[in-house]
Simulated scan of single mutants.
Amino acid sequence: MLTLIQYEMKKTAFMKILCFSALLIAQAFVLLGGATDNYVVMGLGAGLLIFFSFLIFFILGLSSMASLSKDLNTTQGYMLFMLPKHSACFLLAKIIESLISTFLAGVVVSLLFSFNIVYFSLDMEFYQDAFEMFWNLVMSGKGFGTLSLYMIRFLATAAAFWIFLSTMAILCVTVQASIFKGKALALVVSIIAFFCLFLYLFSALPELAANISWEYKDPIFYGMIIVLSVGFFALSSYLLEKQRNF
């Protein structure tokens, strides 16, 4: 499994270099504008930094989808799928790689924005007070426990949603490749199907959970997310394994 994850990281390494290079270039414009008091350059850099930050998450989120589409619709994945491993291993490696890459991108973006807030802030007393309040919260035993539980819950929720979206995207690509393998605009069809399914589920699932039980709507909603993720992954693995053995 580790070898497959490393292989997926190598396949998408060039794309990641381009993404982070775009972030660094935008950050360089921000620093250059601040150093020369050129607010036009600084504003342009800030705008590009915000735009690229959102774009990177979008690209990395669809990286597993694009990689699988190439593997199934071109000769790129021919030798890979000749390995004596179940199809679920290949799909799981793509999901894990996408999750790791997105997490690292989130860390980089958070550090850049935190640096800019501190570096260009004029009201340093506000941030100093906020930092002291945060530090006091961390140092108190009860506060540290509460903060830790909040962070764990936030990360777990983000990971659950990311896995749900990844398994949904992989299912769309797998179904498309099974029906329209090698056809033009295959990835575009998969992306359209993914967004349609995404919009439908995220409008229907919360309402369904609330109708079942308003008091426990959140646990029911997250339970649905987990069940659907497992179902999407299992169906994708089955279709891919059937296609390999055909």
Rank of each mutant, 00 (worst) to 15 (best):
L208E: 11
M133R: 06
L205A: 08
G141E: 14
Q6I: 08
M133C: 08
S213E: 11
L2D: 14
F54R: 03
L112S: 12
A169C: 03
V227A: 13
K217M: 14
A234Y: 05
S87Y: 02
A13T: 10
K142E: 15
F154E: 13
R153H: 09
I191L: 04
V30P: 02
L23C: 03
F58Y: 13
M9K: 06
A46Y: 09
N38E: 07
L137P: 05
L4W: 14
E97K: 01
D129A: 04
S53Q: 01
K217F: 11
K217G: 00
A156E: 12
F57K: 02
D218I: 02
L72K: 09
K16P: 09
C89S: 13
A46Q: 14
S140C: 10
F232A: 00
Y222M: 12
A130Y: 12
S101V: 02
L44D: 06
I163C: 14
L147Y: 14
T146Y: 13
L68P: 06
C172L: 03
F164N: 11
T12R: 09
L83P: 14
K11R: 15
N245A: 02
I17P: 03
F51D: 01
S114M: 13
G106I: 11
F221E: 07
V30F: 00
G45T: 03
L171E: 12
T74Q: 04
Y127S: 09
Y127K: 05
Y127H: 15
F198M: 07
Y216P: 02
F131Y: 11
E215Q: 06
L155W: 14
Y127R: 14
F14K: 09
N73A: 00
F20L: 05
L235W: 08
G33W: 01
S140F: 09
F90P: 14
K242S: 05
V189Q: 11
Y7T: 08
E215Y: 11
L201D: 15
S237W: 05
A156Q: 10
R153E: 15
M139D: 00
K85S: 09
L68T: 00
Y39I: 07
L205H: 09
L171C: 05
L72N: 01
I96R: 03
L55P: 00
G182I: 07
Q6F: 10
L205M: 13
G106C: 11
V230N: 02
N38W: 03
F194E: 04
K181A: 00
I5R: 05
F246I: 00
A193S: 08
L155R: 08
T167D: 08
S203Q: 15
L235E: 00
A88T: 12
L4F: 06
M1P: 15
F103Y: 14
A130E: 08
A88F: 15
L205F: 11
F51L: 09
A22L: 07
K181T: 07
V230P: 03
Y127C: 01
I59E: 03
I191N: 11
P206W: 03
I50Q: 04
F57C: 03
D129Y: 13
A204S: 13
L208G: 05
K183V: 02
Y200M: 11
S87Q: 12
W135T: 00
G34L: 07
Q6D: 09
M139I: 08
N136K: 10
L62S: 02
S64D: 05
A210W: 12
